[in-house]
Design a protein around this nucleic acid. Structure first.
Lengths: 146, 146
DNA sequence: TACATATTTAAATTCATTACAATTTAATTT
DNA sequence: AAATTAAATTGTAATGAATTTAAATATGTA
């Protein structure tokens, strides 16, 4: 399975012209399900596309969003993040390491009569399991050392 | 029931010095459960506090957040919004009128073993009932007129 | 009153994002 | 193929919310 081919196929499905840049941006998102920022994508693709502009990344991601190819994740305080996984899932951001983890969740129907819901975003924040373990280890070291 | 008194009481409960500015910012949030921005609060309080600085609003809201007196709502594309209602509820933003509506919702426990969850935010977007009605009326007018 | 601490202020800065005009590339027509 | 049109990409400059900084002011306590 080739991410480039998969990206090209997805673009064609949506009737979007599959330019080199578009294919590469989408392939990057497919191969890096780590919710990258515009900067991440830009720095990665710049290596092989010397004249690439950051504006193009913004434009491309806007287009993808309109076509439902990506979803924007606004969990981070400063930067937007992008996810090629458009299925329903929540996002957890660790306040220590800033990493974003997907999780599955089911919610009841909200009491919004007459409202038309277009997008749903569930953002949780806290300390991830890994950072939690590190913290506990630090505490143990301290109590053993003294 | 006086919002000023209520704000003062809440601040004292948390052991935070109840300065005039703090009381007024919190009272504003209590009396305007419309998820105001920093700018909204600033413009409203400036009228009676001529030397008020926007930085103070930021500082005050940061303090309130630490003390769990307010919750930050990041649903808007550009500006942060603040809510003195700290009970669990979701937020819906209308893509037409930008108004934010509270809703109640219950979600299943996420599959995040070992994770420590500190804050939860549920953001839905779409068209609110009012704007939906307006749109339908416009459509009807068109089909009747022609 | 004097002192230390907490609060408030205003100006300057930061930085992700957007606006826009110019340029390049690709597709279509003559 | 050349000419025309449309679409995509680029770079610079502007935007504006949020933060930083340092100075000024107010407050509580001895």
């Amino acid at each position: 399975m080739d991410y480039i081919e998969a990206a090209q196929a997805l673009l064609q499905e949506k009737g979007v012209r599959a330019s080199t840049i578009r294919i590469n941006v989408l392939a990057y998102l497919l191969s890096h399900p780590t919710h990258p920022t515009v900067e991440h994508i830009y720095q990665a693709l710049r290596k092989s596309m010397l004249t690439l502009s950051k504006t193009t990344i913004y434009n491309t991601l806007d287009l993808f969003q309109q076509q439902n190819l990506v979803r924007v994740i606004n969990i981070d305080e400063k930067e937007m993040r992008y996810d090629a996984n458009t299925t329903e899932h929540g996002h957890f951001q660790c306040q220590e390491c800033k990493a974003i983890t997907d999780f599955t969740i089911r919610c009841s129907t909200p009491d919004l009569p007459g409202f038309q819901i277009a997008t749903r975003n569930i953002y949780y924040r806290g300390i991830c399991a890994e950072c939690q373990t590190k913290k506990e280890e630090l505490l143990n070291e301290k109590s053993n050392g003294n």
